[in-house]
Nucleic acid binder design. Structure first.
Lengths: 103, 103
DNA sequence: ATCGTATTTAGATTATTATCTAATTATACG
DNA sequence: CGTATAATTAGATAATAATCTAAATACGAT
């Protein structure tokens, strides 16, 4: 599966998007993240692993706790894809969209 | 289901993303779109309906053919969400950690 | 009305995914 | 070592989603 596809699939779940949102401001431990959701820890752990596999988060162990952090590199790829969609749309209407006086 | 969630779910399928990519440059008919994929027309029609339900595309009938077009309003919402993720990250490195609360 | 074309809808099947409980690993500490 | 804590892995189940074939709808032309 392509990196892009993994990322989009990972983003398709609201719980996972919320996890990413919490990581915007910095790292958090698995436990800290888990307790904010109405879901068992194993379920949360599954979501972490999906995000990790999509390279949307980083992880490091510190003693018995694991710290997760946002990895923006893939997020930026996604952003580029979405922006392309909008940008392409701007130049779609065949007759002279005003954009740098061509023609 | 929220609009955001519908959109992300719709975007999670590679076929649907490819459809959107084809619509960047302008409208296309259902048949024209369908023949570019190795998939039956009913399956393609299903994807159209998912995209439509997520408000990612518009549709209008012209005689017996249906024209689909990109609807960028929701795409922009998605873009905003993704950009927030990256922007938040930029200001994250302030690990004075009022959050970690290592208890 | 009948036919042909474009497209969708219905219903079934299969694959994927989210979630749970129970068990396991990893680490720290007495 | 034995116990407690943090987190994951395993295995099962139930809900979603993708896809197909067959049938139906919508429209235009004959």
């Amino acid at each position: 599966m392509t990196s892009e596809n993994k990322a989009f699939k990972a983003l398709s779940d609201p719980t996972r998007r919320e996890i990413l949102g919490l990581l915007r401001k910095g790292e958090r431990t698995a436990g800290d993240l888990a307790e904010r959701f109405d879901m068992t820890k194993p379920s949360m752990s599954h979501h972490f692993s999906v995000l990790k596999d999509a390279d949307l988060i980083t992880s490091r162990r510190e003693g018995q706790t694991i710290w997760y952090g946002l990895n923006t590199t893939v997020v930026q790829d996604i952003m580029a894809w979405v922006m392309d969609l909008v940008r392409g749309e701007e130049k779609k209407e065949r007759p002279a969209s005003p954009k740098g006086g061509t023609k």
